[in-house]
């Protein structure tokens, strides 16, 4: 993503003309208008629909047992998928950015697969692997394990879909920084971990944080892949997005939007948290 922004900045059109005030405001106005129509209004609509029948119904909808179990499952899923993707993301990005090896391009392409592939297919892959008729199906059933249509399947599908977020953020930053600073640290007698915490990590902190936040937002919001492997059992294998759909399909629109607003709130909270961190570290 950062790489793409770079390209935009360096594109000849942007640098060639100095913008007159009218043009400037036209641009800003268009951007704001676009944001308003496509992001702000839907967001407001979700909250008004959710609160339409009063605050009591709103809280009743999000504290009902099925909703609570959906919240719990969503948090558990994110709490496993995000750290996994963070650790492996840092390792993979490091390997790719700072070393040269055979098959590097293949690895980069592989990392992009979850972005390129439709989430439904991501879900079906796990059904093909772990389903009763899947490759590993007989083994799983013989050992009385449950993967798909159960929590592990949901975690797997989510981890798969959200894998590229952290890596993709880190690769361009790490490539740009090169290896000089780290080499210097080692020459000055730093251990590997010291180098990581004092040189590498401070350099990639914002990219890492941004990747983690995006990864988390998607992990909580993922619908397609999770829908395929969930089995849709109320109170057991429904994540928040699936619960929203179920409520909507039961003509329970207020409750459905109440839960949807909760999901939106979670997303907003992560963004606020990010801003807070930025402010705190700049101080």
């Amino acid at each position: 993503m950062i790489a793409r922004e770079h390209v935009h900045l360096k594109s000849p059109g942007a640098s060639r003309f100095a913008l007159a005030p009218i043009k400037k405001w036209l641009l800003i106005g268009t951007a704001l208008g676009f944001l308003g129509i496509f992001i702000l209004i839907p967001l407001i609509a979700v909250f008004t629909e959710a609160l339409k029948k009063g605050i009591e119904l709103y809280f009743a909808a999000i504290t009902e047992p099925d909703a609570l179990s959906a919240i719990k499952l969503t948090l558990i899923t994110a709490a496993i998928a995000v750290p996994l993707n963070t650790i492996f993301g840092v390792i993979a990005a490091w390997g790719i950015a700072k070393f040269n090896f055979k098959g590097k391009n293949i690895l980069i392409t592989l990392i992009d697969i979850p972005f390129a592939v439709s989430p439904v297919i991501a879900g079906l892959v796990f059904v093909l692997l772990y389903g009763s008729n899947g490759v590993l199906g007989p083994f799983i059933e013989a050992n009385n394990l449950k993967i798909i249509f159960s929590v592990p399947g949901i975690v797997l599908a989510t981890t798969f879909v959200t894998f590229p977020f952290v890596v993709r953020e880190l690769i361009p930053i790490m490539q740009e920084q090169g290896t000089e600073e780290e080499q210097a640290a080692i020459t000055l007698g730093a251990s590997g971990w010291q180098m990581f915490f004092r040189v590498t990590l401070p350099n990639i902190k914002w990219g890492l944080l941004y990747g983690v936040i995006l990864c988390n937002a998607r992990a909580m919001g993922e619908f397609g892949a999770v829908s395929v492997v969930s089995g849709h059992i109320r109170g057991l294998t429904n994540t928040l997005p699936l619960h929203v759909e179920i409520l909507y399909n039961e003509y329970n629109f207020t409750a459905s939007f109440a839960v949807a607003s909760l999901l939106a709130l979670l997303a907003l909270l992560t963004l606020v948290f990010k801003s807070f961190l930025e402010w705190k570290t700049k101080k």
């Binding site: 059904v127 389903g131 199906g137 798909i148 089995g231 059992i233 057991l236 179920i246």
Partner: peptide
């Protein structure tokens, strides 16, 4: 516990485990 969906899809899920 209840699970609902299109009948064919539900049948498929039961077959898949």
């Amino acid at each position: 516990n209840q699970s609902h969906g299109g009948s064919g899809k539900q049948s498929r899920s039961v077959i898949d485990g």
